[in-house]
Amino acid sequence: MILKRKLTKYVFLPTFIIGIYLYNPFDIFLIGNEMSFVFIILICFVIEYFIEKSKNGEEIYMRPIAAIKAMEEAVGRATEMGKPVLYIPGIASLDEIDTISGLIILGHVSSMTAEYESDLHVPVAVPIVMETAKETCKESYLKQGRPDLFREDMVHYITDDQFAYAAGVNGIMLREKPAAVFFQGKFYAESLILAETGNSIGAIQIAGTGSSSQIPFFVTACDYTLIGEEFYAASAYLSGSPEMLGSIKGQDYVKVFCIVMILVVFINSILFNFSLMNFNITDFFRINLIK
């Protein structure tokens, strides 16, 4: 019975949805996005399957991520030293998933600062991010039973300008000498200016970003860096809830699938180039996105 239900939910349902999309009755679907649709549906169902599995009590092994483990250590260190914690949620607005991930991690970090009674400082570059960050911190302090420790000026606006923001944050770093600095969000050219200043004051620095071009700078200047998908998985990892951990497991299985597909494409390309096969799989993967 359970198997039947699982088969219906995770095999027949996605197949049915994909079938309907490819059949395209009454032209209700856009033409050209088939490949991305199929992959989004498959990825979502794989993640959903592992979330369900995890909710049903299956043990999920999570690879220890040093940067996530170090977050609590960093806040603890700041508390011991009697210095503040500086959290920088990047310079992008809320339309970037990196900023949203940064704010989710901020929720966890502010819970820790509330618990340890450590001072938190969140300078932001976008007003709408400031409001969201303020609410996130307020809720975290409330949840920890320490609303008295929350201050309205904990999260404050500096400027929208990239380098003026970098100058402002550098000033805060040099004047207040925070013991722990978190860079979690979307960063551009200011990443190295900020990280190097943090390094010069001897703060423990933990970075995380989805901007692949900024990752090398953070790796060089910070103590710990969340690279690529680790950054997005951090909030799930920190929450520790089986639902969230299941989604990471699902994501990892999709990654394994991607690795297998890369190998298949690699072998096919070699065979195709030496005319040992007359089918080029890369033609099949080419996505013609309408937008």
Binding site: I40, I43, C44, I47, E48, I97, I100, S101, G210, S212, I227, G228, E229, E230, F231, Y232, A233, S235, A236, M244, S247, I248, G250, Q251, V254, K255, C258
Partner: peptide, 13 residues
């Protein structure tokens, strides 16, 4: 690739 998968999973959550 890791970032893309992470983005999809995060958005899904």
């Amino acid at each position: 690739i890791g970032i893309a998968l992470g983005t999809i999973a995060q958005s899904f959550r």
